[in-house]
Design a protein around this nucleic acid. Structure first.
Lengths: 121, 121
DNA sequence: TGAACATATGAACCTATGCTCATATATTAA
DNA sequence: TTAATATATGAGCATAGGTTCATATGTTCA
């Protein structure tokens, strides 16, 4: 019978509860899923992006409006919108020289609500 | 009548839709709330912490078990547990020489579920 | 076309952060 | 008390990430 953790080399302490580890290991999702989940939440982990998302909760806005509202440079807003766009959280719509951004995800409201519940405690 | 945005100095472009900005500004939460929300999500924005939280979904574990399960050093796990503890997401329980950690928040499951819904799309 | 304006983007800078390493603290057992 | 073990923590390092700056792209209008 092989040691189920024989490929673990970094752990520098003794295993106390082998059975617990085995049970939990069996329930862990794939590495990639956990990585993607972290990447997704990382997008919400910056107050500039949180502000942009919150603003777009109310209504569609162009880049310039967002920059003015949040007291940010046009460039900073544009860079952050790119991050949000790549995470498929906002979508752009061109109207002449303006790009209007709006939310592109129905999960955000629920996630924010749970987050607010936590920090309100 | 004063310009409602006269204190905005960083914006380097012209305001296109003054009314939109005014409406959205009226609906924005306090600066501190948005900052706290970002800080909260930042905790989820790292795959090591995501893994620890997911493991604790299954059952309470001691530091050594977690390190072994996730192939991390005891020190790295301990540092991350401190972050999670400060965010009031996990709570410790001492039993002899071991510290057992368990989840301390009922919102996490709901937040993870929404996050998984998003990345599954 | 060319000028004016809105937005996008690459490079550089600076700060934040996750890890390692060494060591401190805490508990148990001899 | 001393040794052994489990966990916590401060310092330092390396990388990631957010902003600025300069400039490119794209659109409208004369």
């Amino acid at each position: 019978m092989s040691n189920p953790g024989k490929d673990q080399v970094q752990c520098d302490c003794n295993v106390i509860h082998e059975e617990v580890v085995k049970r939990v290991r069996a329930k862990m999702p794939e590495e990639e899923t956990l990585y993607d989940l972290a990447e997704f939440f990382k997008v919400f982990g910056d107050s500039s992006r949180i502000k942009i998302i919150w603003a777009l909760f109310e209504e569609e806005m162009c880049v310039c409006d967002i920059a003015y509202l949040l007291n940010m440079t046009q460039s900073a807003v544009s860079h952050q919108l790119r991050v949000l766009k790549q995470a498929r959280l906002v979508k752009p719509r061109r109207e002449g020289k303006n790009m209007f951004y709006s939310l592109d995800d129905e999960h955000i409201a629920a996630i924010f609500k749970e987050g607010l519940n936590h920090i309100a405690e």
